[in-house]
Design a protein around this nucleic acid. Sequence first.
DNA 1: AGAGATGATTCTTA
DNA 2: TAAGAATCATCTCT
Length: 434
Amino acid sequence: MDDQSRMLQTLAGVNLAGHSVQGGMALPPPPHGHEGADGDGRKQDIGDILHQIMTITDQSLDEAQAKKHALNCHRMKPALFSVLCEIKEKTGLSIRGAQEEDPPDPQLMRLDNMLLAEGVSGPEKGGGSAAAAAAAAASGGSSDNSIEHSDYRAKLTQIRQIYHTELEKYEQACNEFTTHVMNLLREQSRTRPISPKEIERMVGIIHRKFSSIQMQLKQSTCEAVMILRSRFLDARRKRRNFSKQATEILNEYFYSHLSNPYPSEEAKEELAKKCSITVSQVSNWFGNKRIRYKKNIGKFQEEANLYAAKTAVTAAHAVAAAVQNNQTNSPTTPTSGSSGSFNLPNSGDMFMNMQSLNGDSYQGSQVGANVQSQVDTLRHVINQTGGYSDGLGGNSLYSPHNLNANGGWQDATTPSSVTSPTEGPGSVHSDTSN
DNA sequence: AGAGATGATTCTTA
DNA sequence: TAAGAATCATCTCT
C-alpha cells in the first residue's frame, strides 16, 4: 500500500508538473485528443482520477464499486494504467533482483545433507544402513545386533515414509495455493496494474514461505532421526553378560598372568577374537577385573585356584607333548605347541626361560612376560611331580603377593621375572613352588 | 523384590 | 594416553 501511495504521489507530484518521471517515463498523450488543450484542464482530469483512487479504499463497497466502474470508463484510465504498470514493474524488478541473489541457506543445506546421509531423503538405500552398521560395530558386533539393526532400519523407514508423505502434502498445498494466487492476480490485473513479473515475484514469495515450512519438516525429521540414533546407540549401555566361554578365556588369561595382568594390544586383539568381543571390551574387562580383584582378593582366591589348576593341567599336557617331541625330534627344535587356550608364541623362549629361571635373564617384551607366566605354571606342575592338587582342597595356590605395598601391581612394564626371577613376592606361584 | 555380579562410562591421575 | 577409581545401569540369582 505504501508503494502504491508513493507511486501515486510520484505521479501527482512529478508528472503533473510536466516533467518526466524517474527513468524517463512520461505520460502518453491522451487517447481522446485534447492536444493543445490547456494544461490546467489536463491537470484537473488527472488530479480527479488520483483523488478518486486515493479515496476509493475509504469508501463503502457499493460506493467503491460504482467509482471503480467510473474510473474504468474514464478516458485517462489506459494512460494512467500503463504508467502504473511500468512503475510497478520497475520496483518489482528491483525487489526481485535483490532477493534472487540470496545464497543457499547453510542450515537448510545441513539438514538436506543429513537427511541424505541417513537415507531419509534421496533414493532408497537401505535406510541408513551405514549408520546402523556403525552403531552395531560400536556395540560389539554380537548376534543381537542384527535384530537391533533391523529394528533401527524399520523405524528409519517409518520416518522416511512420514517425511515423504508430509513433503508431498506441502508441495501439493504450495502448488494449489500458487495457482490460486496466480489466478487471483490475473483476475485483478484487469482492474489494477499487475505485471507478469509481479506475479512471478509473488509466486517466489509463496514458494519461500512454503520452503520455510518444509525446513521445519526437515528439522523435525532430523530430530526424529537423531533421537532414533541415540536410542539405538544407547543400546550399548544395555549390557549383556559375556558368554561363559568368553569369561573363562579372559579369566584364564588373567590368572595365568596374575603377576602382570596387562595384556598387550596384540594379546587383547587375540582375546577379543577368541571371545567374540571388541578390544575395548577386553580392556574394560581387564580394567574391571584388576580393580575388583585388588579390592577383594579373598573373594577371588577360589577362582584363582580354579584357573591355576586349569592352566596347570593344560600346561602339563603341553610339557608332555614337548618332552615327547624332544625325544623323537632334535632337542634344539621343539615343536611349537599349544598350551590350553593360548598358543605359546615361541616354545623356544619357553625353554630358554625355563633354563634361566634361576638366573636373571628375562624377556623384555610382553611376549616374554606371557611366556614367563606359562613357565611359572609349568614349573609349578613340574615341582608338584604328580602330587598336584586341584586347588580346592584348602591348598591355596595363589596368594596376593603379586600386589605391591602400594596396592598396585608391579610395574606393568616389568615382567615378573625381573623383580622375582627366583620366585620373589611378585610371582604368581610364590607360595607353592619350591 | 533385593542383593550381588558385571559390563560400561566417566573422571582423575601419573 | 592408559590405568585406576568411582559410579551407573543392567543382569542374574535367590
